[in-house]
Simulated assay, not measured.
Amino acid sequence: MNAHTQEVTRLPALAGGGHVMAIVPQTFEETFRVAKAVYLGGLAPAALIGKLEGDAAISAVTVAIMSGAELGLKPMVALRSFTVINGKPALYGDGLINVVRQSGKVAYLRTGCETRDGQMVGWCEAKRNDTDEEKRVEFSQEDAIRAGLWQTDAIVTKWNKWDKKNEQKPNDSPWWRFPQRMLAWRAAGYCLRELFGDVLGGIRDEFEAREIADAEEMRDITPRQERHEPPTPPRPPEPPKAEEPKTIEGEAVVEDGGQTDTAEFFEELETALAGAMDEATVEEIWSGLDPEGTFDGDDVNLDIAYKIKARRLAQINPMNGG
């Protein structure tokens, strides 16, 4: 027997059937180390870290792991369950269900989707075993259409902001690819938030988080008069101009030497986009009102116009809001 053979024979034999335990950090330092390993290993979800890099990205992963720990989720499960919307953690639909199931307070929890009169209806029913409260919530295809979520086109028009042109692309919306699952998850979100609010600890599901983000964005771009803010103090009268600006019927009102009335323009843009039920119509309205030409050289107001458009696209297709 040579030396190599002797060395091999000294190796311990592999044992099967052992239970592999998850690594669960117990302190902040341990959590940060796990988060750093996840980030450096390239396992951090893009939806979680966005454009963050270095310590900022590691911190985002750390917060996700800590948020999951408060809900009873192990680190890697937490990273698969959480997303970040408008800077706030939110749970995916399956993550929400997973947290509630692990709470020990569930007598039963069932979700599904059925067809009634040619329309799909997602549903969720659950019962608590500590209070005997039970609830059933349904979210139908008609509800999704009314909320601007329903998708019916395999090919959709999307705006390429880099090349500044419309492009025909396959519809990657989950409402197009997995309508039954999305209806069931939407019903589960409403049902579980009401029945197990104490278990979820204020963490919202991604659908509610997107709706709140849309509402906050809309509030930021609402004209001052509609936000009931104190009016700006009057300015001293200016010398008369040689030529009074004219208002042309059917076009934006012109004031102060040729500047567009932004409040009226944004109101018209928002009202027009509210009637659009698909991305192609949004692009037609956008091209017709031409915010880019209206605010040529005015990056601030053009950015507001883009936000109004993005908010409507997110309502039509949630994947655009991420």
Score class of each variant (00 low, 15 high):
Y39K: 01
Y39V: 05
L40Q: 10
L40N: 10
L40Y: 03
G42Y: 04
L43W: 09
L43T: 01
A44Q: 12
P45I: 06
P45R: 09
P45E: 09
A47Y: 03
A47G: 08
L48R: 08
L48T: 11
I49C: 13
G50F: 12
K51F: 15
K51C: 15
L52P: 07
E53T: 15
E53S: 14
G54N: 00
G54E: 12
G54W: 06
D55Y: 10
A57N: 10
A57Q: 08
I58W: 15
I58Y: 15
S59C: 12
S59Y: 15
A60W: 13
A60F: 15
V61M: 14
V63S: 10
V63W: 14
I65V: 14
I65Q: 14
M66G: 12
M66V: 15
S67D: 09
S67I: 09
G68F: 11
E70I: 14
E70A: 12
E70W: 05
E70S: 13
E70L: 14
L71I: 11
L71E: 12
L71N: 08
G72D: 14
L73N: 05
L73P: 05
K74Q: 13
K74T: 08
K74F: 15
K74L: 12
P75N: 07
V77G: 13
V77Q: 13
V77W: 07
A78M: 13
A78K: 08
A78L: 13
R80W: 07
R80C: 13
R80K: 13
R80S: 13
S81D: 13
S81L: 13
F82V: 04
F82K: 00
F82L: 04
T83M: 10
T83S: 11
V84W: 09
V84Q: 10
I85A: 07
N86Q: 03
N86D: 09
G87V: 13
P89C: 05
P89K: 02
P89G: 06
A90W: 00
L91H: 00
L91P: 00
L91I: 02
Y92H: 02
Y92A: 03
G93Y: 02
D94R: 02
D94P: 01
G95P: 04
L96F: 05
I97K: 05
I97G: 07
I97L: 10
N98E: 10
N98I: 00
N98R: 03
V99W: 05
V99R: 03
V99P: 02
V100T: 04
R101Y: 01
R101K: 08
R101N: 10
R101P: 04
R101L: 06
S103G: 06
G104N: 01
G104S: 01
G104Y: 01
K105Y: 04
Y108M: 02
Y108N: 12
L109G: 04
R110V: 00
T111Y: 00
T111M: 04
G112N: 03
G112A: 00
G112H: 02
G112M: 00
C113T: 06
C113G: 01
E114M: 02
E114A: 04
E114H: 08
E114D: 08
T115K: 06
T115L: 02
R116M: 09
D117H: 12
D117S: 07
G118D: 06
G118R: 03
G118A: 10
G118H: 07
Q119K: 05
Q119N: 00
Q119Y: 11
Q119F: 04
V121K: 02
V121R: 02
G122E: 03
G122Y: 01
G122K: 05
W123R: 09
W123K: 06
W123P: 11
W123L: 13
E125N: 05
E125L: 00
